[in-house]
Design a protein around this nucleic acid. Sequence first.
DNA 1: GCCCGGTATCGAAGCGCTTCGACAACTCGC
DNA 2: GCGAGTTGTCGAAGCGCTTCGATACCGGGC
Lengths: 340, 340
Amino acid sequence: MAKIHEVAAAAGVSISTVSYALSGKRSISPDTRRRIEEAARELDYRPNAGARMLAGRRTQIFALTEPFRADTHAPAHMAFVLATSIAARRYEYDILLLTEEEASAGMRRVASSGLADGVLVLDVAPDDERVDLARRIALPTVFIGVPDDHEGLVCVDLDFEAASALAVDRLADLGHRSIGFVGHPPTSYEKSNFPPRVRRGLEARAAERGVACTTVLPESDGPRRAPVRAAVRDLVEGGATALVLHCDDTSHAVALDELAALGRRVPQDVSVVSVGATFETSSFQPPIDSVPLVPSASCELAVELAMRMVDGGEVPAAVHLIAPEYRAHGSTAPPGGASG
Amino acid sequence: MAKIHEVAAAAGVSISTVSYALSGKRSISPDTRRRIEEAARELDYRPNAGARMLAGRRTQIFALTEPFRADTHAPAHMAFVLATSIAARRYEYDILLLTEEEASAGMRRVASSGLADGVLVLDVAPDDERVDLARRIALPTVFIGVPDDHEGLVCVDLDFEAASALAVDRLADLGHRSIGFVGHPPTSYEKSNFPPRVRRGLEARAAERGVACTTVLPESDGPRRAPVRAAVRDLVEGGATALVLHCDDTSHAVALDELAALGRRVPQDVSVVSVGATFETSSFQPPIDSVPLVPSASCELAVELAMRMVDGGEVPAAVHLIAPEYRAHGSTAPPGGASG
DNA sequence: GCCCGGTATCGAAGCGCTTCGACAACTCGC
DNA sequence: GCGAGTTGTCGAAGCGCTTCGATACCGGGC
């Protein structure tokens, strides 16, 4: 824990010169700068965090609030936490965790104690209680996800409507006229914000393109995932030549397994596209085309916006949608079975 | 962001009196204390974090390092992160996240910048690079998990050997003479520290009690978990009257499913015990007895030890093992099928 | 009535840094 | 060769708190 005066002494300059040399906020002669950097390296000097916060009016910390509800999907959630942390480090920011009941109370605490420069909100619910809180505290706040009432808030998210529309376009372009949609269990459509957006985008674009679309929202209970298997069977036997999946990874695997069990080949007999998945769809057997939800994209944008706000820049209080991207892995083809 | 002098002015006292009243470090007359507390509440006053760190030589922050490797099991991992955060809040401590490559570099950074009062180490590997680091930095460090080389370190973990021994005892007491062990995939026995400990404890106690024990470490690939199903089938057809499971939740569910498919009832035909699971085994169909790995137990102890070290107390540099606990849910019975 | 010990409060120092303003020492144009 | 501007460095103020030592006050013992 070397201190700035030790560095200054070692380099034969005053402490303010050290500070300016290391922060680059004033010009320093190349020679002096070199001596200072060397001394700092030698002493493994890093500015004391508390002193820096106090004097610099910057904590270099973002609070990350994540209630972690019972229905939170752990792997996806972890991916977002990780992506946020990595994005923040690019700006030399650290992440402070606010979990559970502290997810809300902690926001207030962090705001009034000046522990963080901003707040990143994860695991956003449609009727999230942190919405009101965000409006009240005087700290830059960015939502990763879109609550129902987002008036005046800065939100970041994948454009889910556009994502599923992209999947429909791909299938329609290939000539499919009847597609099946396998979604999350029905309860997800109340507790989470994005499943309805995927569904809406899908059905709207399907209607536009004159494609028939059947939606099934199977429960995901039990190791056999019987409801998912039944959904897949009903859809393909009902004439769907393509499947759009928006469900968890196990359900993906089970759906593919069921297609194989039914003797339907992918993509010759049935095309398959995954929408809004956070996991790697290319490692399924067979690999599956997808329009993924990329945690790093959302989190990087969120952090960038938060940084701009911290720096006093203007950030529109709006939903910042991320354009979806289609990733082909060979699981789509024109309809028509044996002839394809 | 009210400041201490505003509270002092509102209560008609000096700022040092406010500080003492709120920290309780010197006696203050009941009347004065009341006025101060009232003023603080009214102004929503909280000491500025940076100032507190600087003046108080306490950051009230623990760094949590978690590399989050590719093979990390997300749900279990999240449970530990959450438990750590909750345990820390009991002492008014916050958790700062150090992920990925920052898991190590961040430890150094946090130590030399005085950003945290201590470090909690998660996701511990047998040959963890954070072991050396922990020895070098001058910050209280507690490992949640046990690396191979733990000389001079403070570690906390479930006593896995005792846990599986407890399961064997239960089954042996009931009269079982042949048990099957379904473990994690083989690679887990190199990358993680505890699977070998479970296995060791199980086999040792089985030998002591004169119980035959067959171990299978099935791969867990594919939605069908065929290797797990095969393992269960082979074990029960090979004469095992009880199964000890130490694997992920899906494999648990699949194992039970397979038993049902084989027409074996639990517990009449086969007894089942889960060892070292972080998930709820009582919600399986049927509910399963377990000797669980309780994240909150490990994390609470880790935080308590870290606090003691921060407070200058003596904490033995040793592995602090947590005694396992048997939780019965009706999945064990004496062997003997129809007669049971 | 005086001294003593305890209790309640205050003022001021200092934690380690950032940043402002000052000021030498130069450079340049004319 | 002199004033104006530029560049590199320094001293000191101050960020908001904790904590030390001092002080004022009070009641009790003699």
